[in-house]
């Protein structure tokens, strides 16, 4: 396995993305807006001495930071479908497969390409989010709320695992769907379970605290490994050329 080849493929995709306005907008703009909009809600409603307890405040912020997980899953499908179905539609997959590159190197390159831009953008968004929240709450709390363990687990485990889930789903979808938009729309179904978790958190059925995040991560890890297996079966030279319709 030559990792540099995967990187060559991913870099090529980055150059292609840079020429696509829709990709740039969704990947950069949405997390950015979220990182400003969410603290704004907190600022205007939450902390204006309206008697919110620290616990309530923490739970509100936990569910807000979970938004970024949903975003990680959702943005990655957009890019993954684009990167794979794009090659299929432009028929550039055949000359690519004709190079001395293994299926795994190509799959990994495509996964890098779909994973890195959204996750980086999410990290930047989360960074802005944390700084803004800290700025707004320092005077009331007397300490910096962020960084904390909860957000650390989101950054290190939950968001990347959600994004990987999306990449794998994107690979599997691309083998069955021939239209970028259709794949992107189907891919958005991935946010349903995450929204479910979010709602359960909101109605207080589960907490979105450290323990839940760890459990969610463990579940996603298992699903990721399973989908990884499926996606490597789907992503075989011969399948791609003869069965991907």
């Amino acid at each position: 396995m030559k990792l540099w080849k995967s990187w060559v493929i991913a870099s090529k995709d980055f150059s292609v993305f840079r020429k696509k306005k829709s990709v740039i907008y969704s990947v950069i703009l949405i997390p950015l807006l979220m990182s400003i909009f969410l603290p704004f809600i907190i600022g205007s409603a939450g902390m204006k001495g309206s008697g919110v307890t620290i616990a309530e405040f923490a739970s509100l912020l936990n569910s807000f930071s979970f938004f970024f997980v949903i975003l990680a899953a959702s943005l990655t499908t957009v890019i993954a479908s684009y990167s794979l179905i794009g090659e299929k539609i432009e028929k550039s997959i055949e000359p690519l497969l004709a190079t001395p590159t293994t299926d795994k190197e190509i799959l990994l390159g495509k996964s890098f390409a779909a994973f890195l831009p959204p996750i980086l953008s999410i990290y930047i968004g989360l960074g802005i989010f944390m700084v803004l929240i800290d700025k707004m709450t320092y005077n009331t709390l007397g300490y910096f709320y962020y960084p904390n363990w909860n957000i650390a687990i989101i950054i290190v485990l939950v968001a990347p695992l959600a994004s990987i889930l999306s990449v794998e789903l994107g690979v599997i979808l691309s083998s069955r769907v021939n239209d970028v938009r259709a794949a992107q729309q189907l891919g958005q179904l991935i946010i349903i379970p995450f929204f479910g978790i979010y709602i359960l958190g909101e109605i207080g059925y589960i907490s979105l605290g450290i323990n839940s995040m760890l459990v969610i991560s463990a579940i996603m890890l298992v699903v990721d490994i399973f989908l990884f297996y499926i996606s490597t079966i789907t992503f075989r030279r011969e399948e791609i050329l003869t069965k991907w319709k």
């Binding site: 292609v16 055949e94 004709a98």
Partner: peptide, 19 residues
């Protein structure tokens, strides 16, 4: 090794149109 030794011009050109 074979793929390295050969060049293929497929029936669809398949260039990256944006690049």
């Amino acid at each position: 090794k074979i793929r390295k030794l050969i060049g293929l011009v497929p029936d669809n050109v398949g260039l990256y149109e944006e690049l």
